[in-house]
Design a protein around this nucleic acid. Sequence first.
DNA 1: GTGGTCTAGACCACC
DNA 2: GTGGTCTAGACCACC
Lengths: 123, 123, 123, 123
Amino acid sequence: MQIDDSRPIWAQLVDEFRRRIAVGHWHPGDKIPAVRELALELGVNPNTVQKSLAEVDRLGLTTTERTAGRFVTQDVSAIRAARAALAATTADGFAAAATGLGMSLDEATRLLEQRWNARKDDQ
Amino acid sequence: MQIDDSRPIWAQLVDEFRRRIAVGHWHPGDKIPAVRELALELGVNPNTVQKSLAEVDRLGLTTTERTAGRFVTQDVSAIRAARAALAATTADGFAAAATGLGMSLDEATRLLEQRWNARKDDQ
Amino acid sequence: MQIDDSRPIWAQLVDEFRRRIAVGHWHPGDKIPAVRELALELGVNPNTVQKSLAEVDRLGLTTTERTAGRFVTQDVSAIRAARAALAATTADGFAAAATGLGMSLDEATRLLEQRWNARKDDQ
Amino acid sequence: MQIDDSRPIWAQLVDEFRRRIAVGHWHPGDKIPAVRELALELGVNPNTVQKSLAEVDRLGLTTTERTAGRFVTQDVSAIRAARAALAATTADGFAAAATGLGMSLDEATRLLEQRWNARKDDQ
DNA sequence: GTGGTCTAGACCACC
DNA sequence: GTGGTCTAGACCACC
């Protein structure tokens, strides 16, 4: 649980599931965990998971086969879109913080470079 | 409440309070809300808020005066440090996502530039 | 209540609300009844009405203003689409019945003409 | 269960049983299911089924033999009448919708032709 | 009063 | 066991 995210749980779950697919935690063609299982894992009601997964279906990232379960799409372009969306979101988060702190694009770029290389050194 | 941040709540609260000071939501010299008030606002136990505020004190971002309450530091360098930390954190988030998606630093920089300008156009 | 419609209630409600808009029972710009009111009128749970109205919103036939209520779109093209869909649906129903009974298109057309004129005489 | 058909359930059941006979779901000479069985299938009270079947008897579409059960008539003309009634009903539904939407008979006929051919292509 | 969210729990079809 | 639907009822923000 995190403080201060006022968006509905179901919308946060949509983001979380998109993220899992975007980063390849769930691979194309994979069966994803059952609704009740995810609800248990995430500590929310199955109905809430259900609502968010319906939206993920609608986004074309998963397909549902009623008795067999729910599967990550094999449609590469849909997944590519999810990856692009994820990258854009984190870029926006950084841009928002940096502008909020009065940084210029140049300063932000330098900072990104710095942290990028720090990451590389960590590994 | 957000899904999937597994760090302890008190640590998340430290981040939240640092953020409020870094972005100027709480200004230097301001009296910040009472522990009980924050606990109510954030929906957590007062003891948890207390623990996180003690850490914020230790970071030099706030000072406590027994009877009068808790105040944001007037020490500019401490606040500057908090701002730098916030910027670094979001930069890290972007860097992590971008490398996770197989992007190069060049691609990440171009994306940042793109989103930066998109923000500007929105305003 | 009618026999033998196995589709979910929420989907039937979507059809019903589209129909009300298509035939002009609810006019462009009109405030439609509150969720709880519709639930009472239709004898179903407010949550079920809520789900169907979210879909009607998604179809662009209504817009929601959180505290003021829900309104029929003023977008003529969206309404035109709803009208076309309604006409197509009833045409399909007739075509399905007619072909199921072994009628030719010519026979169906003649029957339609007959009933059309019978309607006219009734008025 | 469907929304917004305000006719009594028994009358709707008459339509349903006529339809089953008209489309050949129940064939001439067939024994139809027992009252209690139909009541269970349709989720209504056996008395309601009884009332509607009495009407179907009266229409000459079924005959009842006290101990053996209820059978679909072998009278071809009665069945033909049921088929004509079904066709007329759906034709009326289309005509009502089309006139309600301000269409002319010509436009309705063109739409019917269109949907008729679309059906054919689907198969 | 308005729309919206969330939970608990029952139930369904399909296999 | 799987996804899906539906209800009852509590609660929330916004006005």
